[in-house]
Design a protein around this nucleic acid. Structure first.
Length: 500
RNA sequence: GAGCCAUUAGCUCAGUCGGUAGAGCACCAGACUUUUAAUCCGGGUGUCCCGCGUUCGAGUCGCGGAUGGCUCACCA
């Protein structure tokens, strides 16, 4: 497929001088019969293996073959040093005319920063003490036509870092580290769940009814069926159908989509882990949450004490457990056990300078006060239990206290990390709650749930008592990689497209 | 959606009071056979984000717009 034509550099008016120079070199290479976009290359080692075992390589005089991107070059006429970077790290190479011959040394001298090279050679240590590969053979594997950012400062421009993540990954080792860690975190999560006997499943991303969360969905269209479909906003309702079907312990790690604002904590598409366990309740979900997070931290970081933005967070189980009513009593000084009417609740909220609507109920006011006053205090991992029914349309009511549900959210550094409950399995109650949501929807709340008749039907066949849990994977990764923005843990965060 | 801030060479950044654009890296030419932000010597490569306005004159001042960042709102 290689194109042997030479490019006329004069036709490349729109290119800057740096790129013109590289196109010229590309032409020179083609004229010499060197393919600037080479073939498969058999490596014997990664850079880090050589760095870790340098003395053994030196003693044995063993030849090594590595490949990577040229990141820096220091020429000395008839010799020269360069740094080559592969996935594992960077190593210095040394090309000496007498050792490699004129042709290879010429290739070395003409090589640009950014070119991808294959190197065969032996390991030695320079006078300055740096582990180095003495080049015996040099192969150009890929000519780079665009100049890389400056070697010392790297790529700083945040917008360019997100738009051209490939450059970010080349230039900023900590970015590479973060995304490798992200992969390990998800791997550890799977490992934990698989060990516990959970079955990993895949459910549809295209939904006829977007349910399982309060969020505005994206709408798309299927041409052959000529119907609009929603991109899923949660995994919940399909996974619970599988519990009805008898799969007992299921989980899914998958992308969900919410058509809402973008911030340091929100990306329109993000990754959720949801699991459901038959015959379990929300206490079991708390144990799974704290044990899973601790397992992942231990596995990926070697500790359950992590630093986040300068604060040490201790993820060691058990985590603090407190009911929402007790938390509000503790931090806001208001005892909702003593409050009898909605009006009384609204007046207290207003006294605390929290805006509530005239039809706000006691439960929704409690939730407002919690979010405003309590949440910012929840730095160390905390389970907040027993949410009001108004804000929990899919959770089971507490026996003997029907205004509240067996639901908790886990908070770490004042952010919601997990949301879980003993699942509502009463189809009659579920239908009523959907109807209440539909009412809200008709009043203009386009984040309220839609009626999902098929889900109610599934419950009518009978769903065992079930515990369910959802964890925002991106937020977990932020916590464990000390990343201040969700964009730092998403390879290609959503940005407005640019003209150029 | 609102407020604040940013946008100058490929990259990282200076740019004074409004006087016609600069550094380092990178790049081009030369020297250099153990350097490492290599060094020495010569060379500045530009739609100052875009548009309109003020002005004799705008990178700089004003207005409008674009993109991004942060904060807030929204997001149970």
């Amino acid at each position: 497929m290689s194109d042997e034509r030479l490019l006329d550099v004069n036709e490349l008016d729109e290119l800057n001088e740096l790129m013109k120079a590289r196109f010229n070199k590309l032409n020179e290479l083609k004229e010499k019969g060197i393919n600037p976009f080479g073939q498969k290359f058999a490596r014997t080692h990664h850079v880090q293996e050589i760095l870790d075992n340098a003395q053994a390589f030196i003693d044995s005089g063993q030849e090594v073959v590595i490949a990577g991107r040229l990141m820096a070059k220091r020429g000395h006429g008839k010799a020269g040093f360069a740094n080559l970077q592969d996935l594992s790290g960077q190593i210095q190479i040394y090309s000496r005319l007498n050792d490699v011959g004129e042709e290879a040394h010429d290739l070395f001298k003409k090589a640009d920063i950014g070119d991808i090279l294959g190197v065969k050679g032996t390991v030695f240590i320079t006078q300055k003490g740096e582990i180095t590969i003495a080049v015996k053979e040099l192969t150009l594997l890929t000519k780079s036509l665009r100049p890389l950012p400056e070697k010392f400062h790297g790529l700083k421009d945040v917008e360019l870092r997100y738009r051209q993540r490939y450059v970010d990954l080349i230039m900023n080792p900590e970015v590479k580290k973060t995304f490798i860690l992200r992969s390990k975190i998800i791997q550890a999560m799977r490992e934990f769940l698989d060990k516990q006997g959970f079955l990993e499943v895949e459910t549809p991303t295209l939904h006829a009814i977007a349910g399982g969360a309060a969020a505005r969905p994206f709408i798309t269209h299927h041409n052959a069926l000529d119907i609009d479909l929603y991109m899923r906003i949660a995994l919940e309702l399909h996974l619970k159908r599988l519990i009805v079907g008898g799969l007992e312990k299921v989980y899914e790690i998958g992308r969900v989509f919410r058509n809402e604002g973008i911030s340091t904590k929100h990306n329109p598409e993000f990754t959720m882990m949801e699991l459901y366990q038959a015959y379990a309740d929300y206490h079991d979900m708390m144990r799974i949450t704290e044990e899973m997070v601790a397992y992942i931290a231990e596995k990926c970081l070697g500790t359950t004490k992590v630093m986040y933005e300068g604060t040490e967070i201790d993820l060691t189980p058990p985590w603090t457990r407190i009911t929402m009513v007790d938390a509000v009593k503790k931090y806001a000084g208001v005892d909702f056990n003593e409050i009898k009417t909605d009006e009384e609740a609204r007046n207290i909220a207003r006294k605390l300078n929290i805006a509530v609507t005239d039809d706000a109920t006691k439960g929704s006011v409690l939730n407002e006060i919690f979010e405003e006053i309590v949440e910012p205090n929840l730095i160390q991992p905390t389970f907040v239990m027993d949410y009001p029914i108004e804000v929990s349309p899919l959770a089971k009511r507490i026996e003997g206290n029907p205004d509240f549900t067996y639901r908790f959210e886990a908070f770490v550094v004042a952010r919601e990390l997990a949301n879980a409950f003993s699942e509502l399995n009463d189809p009659i109650d579920q239908r009523e709650r959907f109807l209440k949501q539909v009412e809200q929807r008709e009043k203009g709340d386009d984040e309220a749930h839609m009626m999902d008749e098929d889900f109610v039907r599934a419950l009518e066949y009978g769903m065992p008592p079930t515990g369910g849990l959802g964890i925002g994977v991106d937020r977990l990764v932020m916590l464990l990689t000390d990343s201040p923005s969700i964009r730092d843990v998403i390879l290609f965060p959503t940005l407005r497209p640019r003209e150029k």
